[in-house]
Design a binder for these strands. Sequence first.
DNA 1: ATATATTTTTAGATTAATCTAAATATTATA
DNA 2: TATAATATTTAGATTAATCTAAAAATATAT
Lengths: 222, 222
Amino acid sequence: MTSTLTHTEENYLKAIYKANERTKKAVNTNTIASYMNTSAASVTDMMKKLAQKDLIIYEKYKGAKLSPEGSKTATSVIRKHRLWETFLVQKLGFSWEEVHEIAEELEHIKSDELIARLDKFLGYPKYDPHGDPIPNAEGKFTLREQILVAQLKKGAKGILVGVQNHETSFLAHLNHCNISLGSLIFIKDRSKFDRSVHVIVDDHEETLLTEMVSKNLLVRPL
Amino acid sequence: MTSTLTHTEENYLKAIYKANERTKKAVNTNTIASYMNTSAASVTDMMKKLAQKDLIIYEKYKGAKLSPEGSKTATSVIRKHRLWETFLVQKLGFSWEEVHEIAEELEHIKSDELIARLDKFLGYPKYDPHGDPIPNAEGKFTLREQILVAQLKKGAKGILVGVQNHETSFLAHLNHCNISLGSLIFIKDRSKFDRSVHVIVDDHEETLLTEMVSKNLLVRPL
DNA sequence: ATATATTTTTAGATTAATCTAAATATTATA
DNA sequence: TATAATATTTAGATTAATCTAAAAATATAT
Ligand SMILES: [Mn+2]
Ligand SMILES: [Mn+2]
Ligand SMILES: [Mn+2]
Ligand SMILES: [Mn+2]
C-alpha cells in the first residue's frame, strides 16, 4: 500500500500541500515549479508520475491537488520536518534561523518508530521553533487565532506566534530587531506612504518594520 | 574542494574502508559488490567515477583503495553513523538491534555543525551501542585491547566490549542469552567436536554459544 | 604450459530526475 | 472574435545508478 517514495516525490507533495493551504483550488504547474525551483516541464513529468501512483488528482492544463493518500504523506513529512526542527533548537541549541535547511534533509528519514520516539522525547510539542503547528501522528494539528502585524490597527497589541517566511536572512533580521516568538508587539504608528509600521517590542525596543516584514509576522491579538 | 557526494558514493567509500580494515590490500571488485549488494559491473562503473574524483586509487583488474580524501570521507560517515546510533539508544531508548538500519539513513545528513552539536549533546561518547569506536572530528579513534570469545581458553574470563556482526537477528539472539555490552563471560568448557563454547554470563546464566556466535563476540580479557 | 575456472570489464539497456526548445492550449486584450 | 501573451505540455537529450550478457583478463589446476 504505502510504497516507499523518493525524497523528490515527497518534496513535490509537500509543495502542493503548501501551495494549496491558502488557495484551496488545484495548484498550477508554474506555482509548483517555483516552489520546487525547477522547470515547468519537470513538474509536468512528475505530475504524471504522482497521478499514476494515486497521490494526486491531476488534469492536463488544470493543475493538481492531493488525494487523501497524498495528503497523508505530505502531512507526515511536515510533521517530521517540524519535530526535527524542534529537536535541533530545544535539544541541540541551534537558533531558529539555522534549522530549516537541516530539517529539509531529516524530514525524509523513513522510520515511523523513530518519529514516535522523537515526539515523546520532545514532550509532544504542539508548535515548532517558527510557531508552525506540528501535526500529530494522525495528521491533525492545532490551529490558533492569528493575524498579520500588517493588519493590526494603530494602538493594538499582539504576541508573536509565527512567521510566514522561514529564510535564514529574514529570521536573522528579526533577531537583530530583538523579535522572537512570544514577543509583545505594540503598533505605535503606521505610515500611509510606504505602509511601514513603527512598533514597540516587549515594551522597550522601538523598531520600524517594512511592509514586507509586517506581512510575514503572525500575532495573537490581545 | 570537498564537493558534495551522493549517498551511494558515500556508501561505496564506507564499503571500501571496511573491507580494507582487515586486509590492508587493495579491495577487489567482487568484495565491494557483496558489501554493496550490487553487481560487479556496477562496482566497476563506480570505481571509475570515484577514481576520477580522486577519492580512491583504482587500477583495472587490481582493485581499489581509498585516497587520503576518500579515507577522510569514509571515516566521517562512520562517525556520523555511530553517533546517531548512540543517540537512538541513549536518548530515544531504542535497543541495540534496532538502530543500524535507521543510522544507515541518518549518516548521510550533511551538516558538520549538526554532528558537532550531537557529539556534545551525547557527552562525546567514545564507543557506540555495539562497542565500535567513534572517530573524533579529526577521524582518529580509540582502540582497545580485545580478543574473540572463540580464542579465550577454558577457565578464562572477559568483559564483552564489542560484536563483529550487527545484524538484528544476531543481536536479538544475544538479548535472548542475556548477553550485552559489559557482560562478564566465563569459559566453562569448549567442545572439540564442534567448537561450541559453554559459558557462564555474569556469574549465573549458563549458555552454549555456537562457534559462529563465539567468533563474533569481542571481550577484554581479565 | 595449456586448458579451465574465476574475476573483471565492456557493451548495451533501463529508470528517475532533470534540462532546453518547440508545439499546443488557455487566457487576456484590443 | 481575432490576436497576442502566457501557461503548459511534448519531444528529445543528459546524468546517475543500476542491470544482464558477452568479452577479456587473470588465476588455478592439471
Ligand atoms: Mn522549516
Ligand atoms: Mn519550521
Ligand atoms: Mn551500524
Ligand atoms: Mn554500531
